[in-house]
């Protein structure tokens, strides 16, 4: 059973909770194939997308998910204020709560922002990515897609390649996959490999070919040169050379290796176009599955809030 008010990350979830989200998402996936793509599960509820970082796909995915559940959706593109000027995140959250919204979906550049917001409002908070910390729904849709394609998670060998240090997608994937019994390998240039990865349950590799060899799936992260404070690579071509997933490299991997990417892709940097559009790629399936997973998450937190309210009235 789901009793959490919020979804802040995968680190704190149990295996059972992860499985519940995945199975709920499975039942919601069918909705998007209907003539009338709507169920009344969240009718009368208001979902606020509070985005402090530019994001198209995650924001749109949450919006579509909420609308297919019949919720009303409000999008707020907020300016990340420098904390001392302008409205604080807590104040913004309390104002949204005062508008009688039911769920805040928050994207913020500060790690821990979703947790802070959740502590300070009584309504549900869903983390749509906080700094380098977690991006739980992205990892859930990655895991959902893997399970859908390969039939299981337990025992799968999954490699995550890219700038692990600054990746919330990597962190959420490591927690989620490890809890569900996958063998996770993390591959990055040394300077972009944060400490403590092994204690999180993943294996470390500094060699892309080694990480691809034997893998059932590879999740390729976006290389964010604009965020690379340490200037790990002088330019993007060197990155492709050293860590990029190319057709040539895939030839040496398992024939039916699944290739994933959270998007948006830098074609020709972390992944070549042939790979992105190739037979092994499930990148567009990921986008489709994102809706089902987010419907499941919105549904579960809303349901938990409703049962808390019922209990309070009894």
């Amino acid at each position: 059973m789901w009793i959490r008010k919020d979804l802040l990350g995968l680190e704190e979830l149990s295996k059972e909770e992860l499985e519940l989200i995945l199975s709920t998402a499975e039942s919601f996936k069918e909705v998007s194939t209907r003539e009338i793509k709507k169920v009344p599960a969240l009718r009368g509820k208001t979902v606020v997308n509070l985005f402090y970082e530019p994001s198209t796909r995650t924001r749109v995915s949450f919006e579509v998910a909420a609308k297919r559940l019949s919720a009303d959706v409000i999008n707020i593109a907020a300016e990340a204020s420098s904390a001392r000027k302008g409205e604080t995140l807590i104040d913004t959250g309390r104002n949204i709560e005062a508008l009688k919204a039911d769920i805040i979906v928050v994207r913020h550049n500060a790690s821990g922002a979703a947790a802070m917001l959740a502590r300070n409002v009584n309504i549900s908070v869903v983390n749509a990515g906080d700094g380098w910390h977690e991006h739980p729904t992205q990892a859930l849709l990655d895991i959902f897609t893997l399970k859908e394609t390969l039939g299981r998670i337990e025992g799968l060998k999954v490699s995550i390649v890219g700038d692990i240090a600054h990746s919330r997608v990597a962190r959420s994937n490591i927690w989620g996959l490890a809890k569900l019994g996958a063998q996770v390998t993390v591959c990055a240039p040394r300077i972009l490999m944060p400490p403590g990865i092994e204690e999180m349950g993943a294996r470390i590799s500094y060699d892309i070919d080694e990480a691809l060899h034997d893998a059932d799936a590879v999740n390729v992260l976006r290389m964010q040169f604009e965020r690379d404070e340490q200037k790990a690579f002088p330019n993007q071509f060197e990155y492709l050379e050293a860590f990029g997933v190319t057709q040539e490299r895939l030839k040496k991997a398992k024939k039916d290796i699944i290739v994933m990417h959270p998007g948006p892709i830098n074609r020709g940097i972390e992944m070549s176009s042939e790979v992105a559009d190739g037979a092994n790629s499930v990148i567009l399936e990921q986008v489709t599955n994102g809706i089902a997973v987010r419907m499941a998450v919105l549904f579960l937190v809303a349901q938990a809030s409703d049962s808390r309210k019922t209990e309070a009235h009894e």
Binding site: R171, P195, G196, M200
Partner: peptide
């Protein structure tokens, strides 16, 4: 603290 904690929290150590 730099280490597992900074990595888990997604913060600089």
């Amino acid at each position: 603290n730099l280490g597992l904690t900074s990595t888990r929290m997604g913060l600089r150590g």
